[in-house]
Computed example of a mutant assay.
Amino acid sequence: MPGPGRPDPRGIRLLALLGVVAAMAALPLTVASAGPVGEADRGAFRPPAHDDAKRPVSGRSPLLSGPAAATAVRCGPQLSSGEGIEAQTCVLTRGPDIWARTYYRNAGGEELSSVLNLMAPDGRTVEMRCAVVAADDPETCETPRQHVSGDPGAYAAIAEFARRDGGGPLLLRSGSERPQSNER
């Protein structure tokens, strides 16, 4: 029992434990709010460089299965259209999760719509529709995370950009790197 004027050591330990739990809970939110890897500032359109995006994550340490696990990124080329749209589409894998993300900039002055698809090797598709504001700032659209089923290298992603009213031709189609094939 603590003496008069002395704090209870159990209370101090409880507060320290709560502080550690709060820090661990906040870490994924901090990482998520940091933006895509390689984005130096919001004023520049800098999705991951194509060669860097192909670099696989080496090893699958059980120690790296939490929030600090590395993310493997496979991106297609950065493309642009005559209408002022730039985009690069990627498949991202972290631990057991896989998802698609497209980095884009719409400097064309017109609000657009985008459909992003993550395609699994077994034929399943996850689709995400995103409103594309008319702004020169880079933005992202991503699908919800899914559990990897089979070879993560066999997944692909495609983003398509069109006018919001659906009129007119497709303005830009951006795809991830082609899926790896086991056939020779």
Rank of each mutant, 00 (worst) to 15 (best):
A44C: 12
E39S: 09
C90W: 11
I85R: 06
P62Y: 14
R46Y: 02
G59C: 11
E39N: 01
S81E: 01
T89L: 15
P47H: 05
P36Y: 11
V37L: 07
A68D: 07
S80Y: 05
E86I: 07
R42A: 00
Q88A: 03
R60H: 12
L92Y: 11
K54S: 04
A87K: 14
I98G: 10
A68T: 04
E83M: 13
T93E: 00
S65E: 09
L63Y: 03
C75G: 05
P47S: 08
A72H: 14
R46C: 03
D52R: 13
A40V: 02
D97H: 04
P56T: 08
G95V: 02
L92N: 09
D52K: 10
P96Y: 03
A70T: 14
A49W: 03
P56F: 08
C75N: 05
P36F: 12
V57I: 11
G76Q: 01
W99H: 08
P96S: 02
R42S: 01
H50T: 11
V57A: 14
G66W: 14
R46M: 01
A44F: 04
F45E: 04
T93R: 06
C90H: 13
D51W: 13
C90F: 10
S61E: 12
R60S: 12
L92R: 03
Q88F: 03
I85K: 15
K54L: 04
G38T: 00
S65N: 09
R74I: 06
D97V: 06
G66D: 14
P47I: 02
G76H: 04
P48K: 10
G95D: 07
P67F: 15
D41M: 00
L92I: 13
